[in-house]
């Protein structure tokens, strides 16, 4: 990258008018320590930092993190963020703050029209970011992307809006890929599979696809299919049906929820779909099952 990033562009910068979703972007240079200038507070937007120079002691989401040049930090809306000693350390950073419209009911990140990420990608990206407990990412191909985004905004050549938005999407994708890699699905498949399973249970009403589940594990779909089959004995979607039915059984026994609601809560398309799947496996319909379990046997 021949160009180095420019000074921080903030709220009123005219360069950012085509990018209402970018709150600020650019270089942040800290020359001196200002006491109590950087207390630990919840952040409002999605923040990303790339360290160019210096050493930063931060508290991110109640954990002490030390960042060195080349490291990238990702802080999610709602997470607390500040300096270890209440001030910012001396050094140079590239900073990027993105506005997130909302997180929808299905657990998808809503970024706005500028982003070309698909629904399914936005779900997986948010799940990965949310579950990630290691906000510092060491990855050599992230720094050039920050630099490139800055250069495009400054130079404003043909197609720069498209290019910048594209780079922002790419940043999110590569950060998530690196997070799953750091989590090490290859090294410790059982452990990452346990995490995936926990997440499936928490979002059981979502109609998970194999691509989404594989992405959560940081694996391609072929490798994911093979590994899940070898580890659990089931193809991923069948394993998912196991979880859906076992959760449904619990709800059926509790007698508080009606069958249509149980079907939707546990991720079936309809009570009909629930009923046929349930019967195929257990030999009786959810209704029959519930009746049988209300009498004392």
């Amino acid at each position: 990258m021949p160009h180095s990033p420019f000074k921080l562009l903030g709220e009123n910068a005219k360069e950012l008018i085509p990018f209402p979703h970018v709150i600020d972007i650019g270089l942040e240079v800290v020359n001196s320590i200002k006491l109590n200038s950087f207390p630990c507070l919840p952040v409002k937007n999605l923040q990303m930092y790339l360290v160019l120079d210096g050493r930063f002691n931060w508290i991110i989401n109640s954990k002490h993190e030390v960042l060195y040049p080349g490291d990238t930090a990702v802080i999610l809306p709602g997470q607390e963020f500040g300096g270890l000693h209440g001030h910012q350390d001396i050094g140079t950073l590239v900073r990027l703050q993105l506005r997130i419209e909302k997180i929808d009911n299905d657990g998808r990140i809503v970024l706005g029209k500028w982003s070309k990420l698909s629904k399914s990608e936005r779900l997986v990206i948010w799940q990965i970011l949310k579950l990630n407990d290691c906000p510092v990412i060491k990855c050599s191909y992230l720094p050039p992307l920050f630099q490139e985004a800055c250069a495009e905004i400054r130079d404003q050549e043909l197609g720069f809006v498209t290019r910048v938005n594209h780079i922002l999407d790419t940043l999110l994708i590569l950060i998530c890929r690196q997070i799953t890699r750091q989590a090490g699905a290859r090294r410790d498949f059982p452990q990452t599979f346990t995490n995936l399973e926990k997440n499936l249970r928490q979002n059981l009403s979502h109609k998970w696809t194999v691509e989404e589940m594989a992405a959560m594990m940081g694996l391609g779909t072929t490798a994911f299919n093979e590994k899940v089959k070898a580890y659990t004995g089931f193809p991923p979607l069948h394993y998912l049906i196991n979880i859906r039915i076992s959760e449904a059984i619990k709800l059926l026994k509790l007698k508080e929820t009606n069958i249509t609601d149980i079907a939707l809560k546990t991720g079936f398309y309809s009570s009909q779909h629930f009923s046929t799947t349930f019967k195929k496996l257990t030999g009786h319909t959810p209704n029959e099952f519930r009746k049988r379990n209300t009498t004392t046997e």
Binding site: G233, F234, N242, I243, I245, S246, K250, L281, T282
Partner: peptide, 13 residues
């Protein structure tokens, strides 16, 4: 362990 999941898994297998 979840006894219902164990049962369903057993049936399925």
């Amino acid at each position: 362990q979840d006894p219902d999941q164990m049962f369903i898994t057993m049936l399925y297998v």
